[in-house]
Amino acid sequence: MSGTIDFNQLVVFIRVIQAGSLSEAARHLKMPKSTVSRKIADLEERVGERLIQRTTRKLSLTEAGRVLFERVAPAMSDIEEAESAVAGMRGAPRGVLRVAAPMSSSTLGPVVAEYLVRHPDVAVEMVCSDRLVDLVGERFDVAIRAGALVDSTLVARNLGKAKSMLVVAPEYSKRHGVPKTPAELANHACVAFGGGVEPHVWTMESKGKRVEVRIKPRLTVNDMEIARVSALAGVGIACLPELFCADDVRNNRLLHLLVDWSFAEIPVHALYPTRRHLSPKVVAFVDLLAERIQLHDS
């Protein structure tokens, strides 16, 4: 390595990896593609290692490039957060808020809409996916995740626990009756959330008693809204999060079954890369989320 690494070269390097191409990075950085290419070449010459393998179709990191990216990307994120925090001290939330959420996130729609109305200087990019995104590498400001958290350096704010309930359409109950015990679920058409070929087992508890019921799904789907719509249509008995179906139950579009039995509650968290210099746009979004998404206390 000769001399000190140029900070601007590092910025270009990080943006190229995050964007996936020289041309997309050039567009984001508002500079000619030739300039981007030259800065990458200058950085490689300075460190004495090839950092990016270039083909006509894609870019890929070399081992040296991967090491540099993993060390530099978090620091770059800290710098951007510091800039946002300083700017935020002078006014309301602003900029682009990138949010990662699960596939079945229709209940977040009203929260996002209210957030945008409250903060006209903010734009939201919301990506719904069931994969575990890399918040730092993919430049997400906040992620919403349900379930137990893996060990991580991410900061987690507990939003509460999601409770599920058994529901069925009145039309289905008229045609097929309803189960009086968990064991009778095995004799009914069910709507199951998930995927794969393994048999579905619903685990329920009541007054210290725990039972497992193997169901035979009429429909298996990994989208909660499709499961809800199917339950409303009378396809079968569904296990749905209370957030998704409470209004349907209140308005008798769905009937709550086996009310003395419950499913394990699922913790829900908002995650962000660091609590240092947390930008106003993130604070405002997470605060509104905690206020509007009515989950059970932890």
Rank of each mutant, 00 (worst) to 15 (best):
V142E: 01
G147E: 04
A148R: 14
A148N: 06
A148V: 12
A148F: 06
A148E: 13
A148P: 01
A148T: 11
A148D: 08
L149A: 11
L149P: 02
V150R: 15
V150G: 13
D151P: 06
D151Q: 14
D151N: 10
D151V: 09
S152C: 08
S152Q: 08
T153S: 15
L154T: 08
L154M: 15
A156R: 08
R157C: 05
R157E: 14
N158Q: 11
N158F: 05
G160T: 06
G160M: 09
G160R: 02
K161A: 15
A162Y: 00
K163G: 04
K163S: 15
K163N: 07
K163P: 01
S164G: 06
S164Y: 14
M165G: 03
M165F: 08
M165T: 09
M165V: 15
M165R: 15
M165D: 02
L166M: 09
V167R: 01
P170T: 09
E171L: 06
S173P: 00
K174R: 15
K174D: 07
K174C: 04
R175T: 03
R175W: 00
R175S: 11
R175I: 00
H176Y: 14
H176T: 02
H176E: 04
G177C: 08
G177V: 06
V178R: 11
V178E: 08
V178G: 01
P179G: 06
P179R: 07
P179M: 07
K180I: 03
K180F: 02
K180D: 05
K180C: 04
K180E: 11
T181A: 13
T181G: 02
T181E: 08
P182D: 05
P182K: 07
P182E: 04
A183F: 08
A183V: 04
E184I: 05
E184P: 01
E184A: 10
L185H: 07
L185W: 09
L185V: 07
A186M: 08
N187L: 12
H188A: 03
H188W: 02
H188Y: 13
H188V: 00
H188R: 04
A189G: 07
A189V: 01
A189N: 11
C190W: 01
C190Q: 01
V191K: 03
V191T: 05
F193H: 12
F193K: 03
F193N: 02
G195M: 10
G196Q: 04
V197G: 04
V197Q: 11
E198Y: 12
E198I: 06
P199D: 06
P199C: 14
P199I: 12
H200Q: 14
V201K: 11
V201Y: 10
V201A: 11
W202V: 05
W202M: 09
W202T: 00
T203A: 14
M204S: 03
M204T: 05
M204D: 01
E205F: 11
E205V: 13
S206D: 05
S206G: 06
S206L: 10
K207M: 14
K207Y: 08
G208Q: 13
G208V: 13
G208Y: 13
G208W: 13
K209R: 15
K209L: 14
V211H: 13
V211Y: 14
V211E: 14
V211P: 05
E212Q: 15
E212R: 15
